[in-house]
Design a protein around this nucleic acid. Structure first.
Lengths: 349, 349
DNA sequence: CGAATTTGTGGAACCGGTTCCTTACTTCTG
DNA sequence: CAGAAGTAAGGAACCGGTTCCACAAATTCG
């Protein structure tokens, strides 16, 4: 492996001149620059990043911490981040900090301290107070995707507003009995769920309707949505005509549950999701689209800006979703609306 | 930020002694060691990885290259790798090398050359000849998950054997008209698909049955499986009684398609998948289980072993799957079997 | 008991870059 | 035309560790 000293020798210049020529900073004559460049090319010279970061203090890589990568949202954000970094020649170090694990503890206590990156992107991490402290104590910029806006910059969907619009969509279609599906009973994912619940409640309150929240078991997955929806829909007396799902995966689970129970969507039940998941189209799911990939890219931009000017104020970007109407929502049927009034049975099909 | 020199000064020893004390290598008296250790703790000393890798030549991190992270298999493998590395205190640099993109070209031409890791894990990369050349030219160990076994170590499912067993499962249940669902018409993912097709064909040949392959559009996703299955099953005259799907996502798409077309699973149609995807249980899918997370962990072990002894021979680990019987497969109905003989219609439901 | 070995420690070189400082030659500017 | 400013390049220090080597003291051995 040839180093910059070899390049310098081959080009007949000093190390410092070679360095300047290759980096493009400082005074170098055009003639020298090209001589160094071709010497470097001839030798197949590749700078040592270790040496570079040792002497400059910059590592040209950023750390990404997330609680899992095998969920749609997280994987998409990760791809967005990776693409954005790749385009700028930066590297990405991935840390999978699953809540409650020993690995997570180690990440926050040891790993992050090792100064291996110029900044951190924390995705849906929902850090404990001391975890956040540790991240900030590194003195490096931190950007969150989903999360606390008070101490770091953040980019995320405006969850409250989004759930509110989803709910209003159903209300506008004449639905009265609308439940929110997908608040976890345990509060491991509080941030997103509680905020969306709040938006739903707000919309219901403004329309003078009473809110009802159905809990999903554990994760916000399709099977969880399915199970919760089976519970919710099996009792035909209290059956809602509209469901606002916490996310598309839960919404799709609900649609599949409805189908299995013989409940027509959207004739007897309207379902609206949040995400615009890659499967939404297949299930004709009406949803509020967010673009996680773009959020990843935006997080990178925010982070780089913060690296460039370290004492700029943290920024909070709350993104507005776009309503994508497909075929899982429709007007509340006359009979179904009636059930609200007289409390009678919803039609079985 | 305090360096090892500060620690040495605080402990009243030389830099070299401090280094030995902290690394545990070489002669240091127990008394000195503990004095250095507490000095380091008091100062909150964290070694600079840049300096360490510059002087040792080892980076304590490994590169993972994959074409996407937002597919179930890849995300699971990635989590497995990350967990295994985390447990060993190694860092993971992620490179998302999407086929045909400019980013991929850059990864292979520039990024990998930057010596930022001690080894590479290539997941489902299906590298072109020159891409493989470049990886190997780095002189660092390479382990593939899915992929070529001739030039690198590899860990993967025994795809041919797996598809064969899936097919035999249906044959044993009395099915005769069995199609393989999910070979892409374009050959962008050749390795996995073609090998599985071969296993299917082998089983069919041995049972004296004729093979039929149905192509899915583009990716091996659930919507793709759905679309292909709708095509396949709409024509009730040639309808199969069994489907071997290239993977669970395609299998689930097929099950949903069957349901929408009013075809009972498993009464009128048996579907078997490969993977044991996280949604398999919800759809009662019979499948051949592979464990991608474990494959990621295994790849890490293989890689570390290869880093330890650089001139060991490459190893090929072909894993055997476990058949998980759920409720998407059942005996071929008498009527259905008869259709094979008389060529008549399969029952509509 | 003297020599050989083991143990403990410090000094200095080194890994491979970047950057500050100095020198020297040009080119403006008043 | 002298001095200031701009351009070009080299020397050496530095980033923060690890490791080789030298040396001294303690221990083992023949």
């Amino acid at each position: 492996m040839s180093g910059i000293a070899d390049v310098a020798r081959a080009a007949g210049v000093s190390k410092s001149t070679a360095s300047r020529a290759l980096s493009g900073a400082g005074y170098v004559s055009e003639e020298t620059r090209s001589r160094v460049a071709s010497a470097a090319a001839a030798l197949g010279y590749v700078p040592s990043t270790a040496a570079q970061s040792l002497s400059t203090g910059r590592t040209q890589s950023i750390g990404v911490v997330m609680p899992f990568v095998n969920r749609w949202f997280f994987a998409e954000v990760l791809e967005g981040i990776q693409q954005a970094l790749l385009a700028r020649g930066l590297d990405l170090m991935l840390y999978d900090a699953k809540p409650g694990t020993d690995g997570r503890r180690r990440i926050f206590e040891d790993v992050l301290a090792r100064k291996r990156f110029d900044g951190i992107i924390a995705v849906g991490l929902d850090p404990a107070e001391d975890e956040l402290d540790r991240m900030l104590a590194l003195g490096k910029p931190v950007v969150s995707v989903i999360g606390d806006a008070t101490r770091t910059s953040v980019v995320s969907l405006d969850d409250s507003h989004t759930a509110q619009r989803a709910t209003e969509h159903l209300i506008a279609l004449g639905h009265r009995r609308i439940v929110f599906l997908g608040a976890g009973a345990d509060t491991r994912w509080p941030r997103v769920e509680t905020t969306r619940v709040a938006g739903y409640e707000q919309a219901m309150r403004e329309a003078d309707l009473s809110a009802y929240i159905a809990h999903t078991p554990a994760a916000l997955s399709m099977p969880a949505g399915y199970a919760a929806a089976v519970d919710l829909l099996s009792d035909s007396r209290a059956r809602p005509t509209g469901i606002v799902a916490v996310c598309d995966e839960v919404a799709i689970g609900a649609i599949i549950a409805a189908r299995r129970l013989g409940i027509q969507v959207p004739a007897a039940l309207s379902v609206v999701g949040i995400d615009d998941h890659e499967h939404a189209e297949m299930f004709a799911l009406t949803t509020l689209r967010q673009n996680p990939r773009e959020q990843g890219e935006t997080a990178v931009e925010l982070l780089l800006r913060q690296i460039a000017e370290p004492d700029a104020e943290p920024v909070a970007m709350r993104l507005k979703p776009r309503l994508v109407v497909r075929n899982s929502t429709g007007p509340a049927a006359a009979a179904a609306s009636a059930t609200v009034v007289d409390g009678g049975l919803a039609p079985a099909e």
